[in-house]
Every structure is written in structure tokens, then in C-alpha cells.
């Protein structure tokens, strides 16, 4: 069908085609559309002229302004570093004692330290540093390696059981799995340790006998690391067993599991990821958590 009609509403004619009742008007393209079209084309061509754009075989047109995103980034990073250098140097120069007494540096600890902690540490230790099962709380008074900022700083540098060559190492052996102790003996040790830690223990008829057996095994197998007083040893990172803080849970099954399968907690080394001043801020920030 080809019949050109005039549309009464708009005053324009149709193209004369019709598809199942649909017609089209032959309205000319409004001037504003053509102007905008030309405007966007002009923008594109200008932008391409100024910036690196079209490929030329194995090279590309570098653009009139000679801008390159890699050089721009390097420049911006250099500028930012220049601004930060003076206070970073003051953090690096100050020893830990001095930082605590310097209000400006402590402000940086509270500000940047907190941000660094949330970005790097909070996924294991929690946003407030209260830890989680298997991840120690940094906000209590129980410390595996000590609460001195220099110690924490070193832990941050080398990590614990990490791939770092100087890593701190503290591994609880798998006494049960390796066949050193059998399940019954471990049960006795669990009873002894939990009794000493003032945790409720089931009173069976042979309780005192088992307690004695547990104590004997403890002396033989455990006291070397955890001490005869069960208070652990911060110089080798063994936990205090009688301080009410339990990294892997205090219930009977969890303590049994710790002795049977051992524990190999992992803290990554941050030497390659965080600058020394950042680790310093974090070490101090960690001591302020409570």
C-alpha cells in the first residue's frame, strides 16, 4: 500500500507506507537534534585529537596533549608522597614511648591507625579488635606474645606461622593424631587443665584418679611449653591456660580437639604489604584497643 496522507494533528504527511495499521510521518529531523548530533561529534573528534586515540598499525596516535595515564598516575603518587613525607618521617623517627606522649602523632594513630586496622585486620580480629573463635582478641589483657608495641610491631612484620623467613612459630602438636597420646589420656589432661582453669568438671567416681593421671601427663607432655604453672610463655607464644581466655573454645570437646589435632594459628606477615610507619601506627593503635 502506498498512499501519502496528511496527519491532521501534526500537519505532516505520512511516508505512504503502512504496516498492519501503523503509519509513519515524514517529519523532518528537528534542527536541535542535528545541532546536538554535530556537537557530540565535535566533542569526540576534539577529544580524540587531544588524547591518545586511534591505532596506527603497531603504534597509536599519542594525542596533542601527550597525556598518558601511567605517567599521570606516577606523578600524582609522587605528589601525594611528597605531602605525606614529613609526618611519615616523624612517625618513623619517634620511638614508641615518644608516640604515646605526642598528641599530633596520637591523632594520626587514632585516625589512620583505625582505618588501617579496619582495612587490614578487622576481617579476622573484628572491627573492634575483639577477635573471634580461632582469632585472638586484641582488646583484652591476654596476649600470646606480649602487649608491648615493639613486640606487636615485630609480629606484624614477620607474622606467625607465616611464609616469612623470620616468622614467629608457635605450633601446638597434634598429640592424638600423631599417636603420642591416646584418647583416654587426653581426656585426663583435659580434665586436669579444665580443673586448674576453674571450669566446671564432671564429678565421676574415678575423678581424683583421673585428675592425678592428667596432671602427670601434663607435666610430661605439656609443661615444657605451657609451664608447670599453666601460665604459658610469651617468649615462645604459648597461651596461658588459666587466664579465662580461650582462643579455640573452653568446652571439653574444643580442648580435646586442640590436643588431639593440634593448632596452627596463622597470622600473615605484613612486611611486604604495609609500610614501616603503617605497621608502627597499627602496633600503637592495637595497644589502645579495649
Amino acid at each position: 500500500m502506498s498512499l501519502i496522507e496528511r496527519d491532521n494533528h501534526s500537519g505532516y504527511t505520512t511516508t505512504g507506507h503502512e504496516w498492519n495499521g501503523i503509519k509513519e510521518l515524514n517529519t523532518p529531523i528537528p534542527r536541535i537534534v542535528l545541532i546536538c548530533l554535530a556537537g557530540t561529534f565535535l566533542f569526540a573528534v576534539t577529544y580524540w585529537y587531544l588524547m591518545p586515540s586511534w591505532p596506527l598499525g603497531d603504534r597509536f596516535y599519542p594525542g596533542k596533549l601527550g597525556i598518558d595515564q601511567r605517567t599521570t598516575l606516577a606523578e600524582q603518587t609522587r605528589e601525594a608522597d611528597k605531602l605525606k613525607r614529613s609526618w611519615i618521617q616523624s612517625v618513623e623517627a619517634a620511638d614508641f614511648e615518644a608516640i604515646y606522649f605526642d598528641n599530633a602523632l596520637m591523632a594520626a594513630v587514632n585516625d589512620s591507625g583505625a582505618r588501617l586496622f579496619e582495612d587490614n585486620c578487622s576481617m579476622c580480629h573484628g572491627r573492634l579488635g575483639v577477635g573471634n573463635l580461632s582469632y585472638p582478641s586484641l582488646a583484652d589483657e591476654s596476649w600470646l606474645w606480649g602487649d608491648d608495641p615493639t613486640v606487636i610491631y615485630e609480629t606484624l612484620r614477620v607474622g606467625i606461622n607465616s611464609e616469612h623467613p623470620e616468622s614467629r612459630n608457635a605450633i601446638m602438636p597434634a598429640f592424638g593424631q600423631m599417636g603420642v597420646l591416646d584418647a583416654g589420656t587426653i581426656d585426663d589432661v583435659v580434665t586436669y587443665v579444665r580443673t586448674e582453669a576453674r571450669l566446671p568438671v564432671l564429678r565421676t567416681r574415678d575423678a581424683s584418679k583421673r585428675l592425678k593421671a592428667g596432671q602427670a601427663t601434663y607435666k610430661l607432655a605439656c609443661s615444657g611449653c605451657h609451664g608447670t604453672d599453666l601460665k604459658g610463655n610469651q617468649s615462645i607464644g604459648t597461651p596461658n591456660l588459666v587466664d579465662r581466655y580461650w582462643l579455640y573454645g573452653s568446652d571439653k570437646d574444643s580442648v580435646f580437639e586442640s590436643i588431639w589435632s593440634g593448632r596452627q594459628g596463622h597470622m600473615p606477615s605484613w612486611e611486604a604489604r604495609l609500610e614501616p610507619y603503617e605497621r608502627k601506627l597499627l602496633a600503637v593503635y592495637t595497644t589502645t584497643l579495649d
Partner: peptide, 16 residues
């Protein structure tokens, strides 16, 4: 970056 620039140009030209 040249590939990015080409994309910007054509994206803007697409508006109309």
C-alpha cells in the same frame, strides 16, 4: 588508554 579514549568518543556520540 587509546582504547579507552575511543570508547569515550563513541559513547558520547551515542547520546543523540
Amino acid at each position: 588508554q587509546w582504547v579507552q579514549t575511543l570508547g569515550v568518543g563513541f559513547s558520547v556520540m551515542l547520546i543523540v
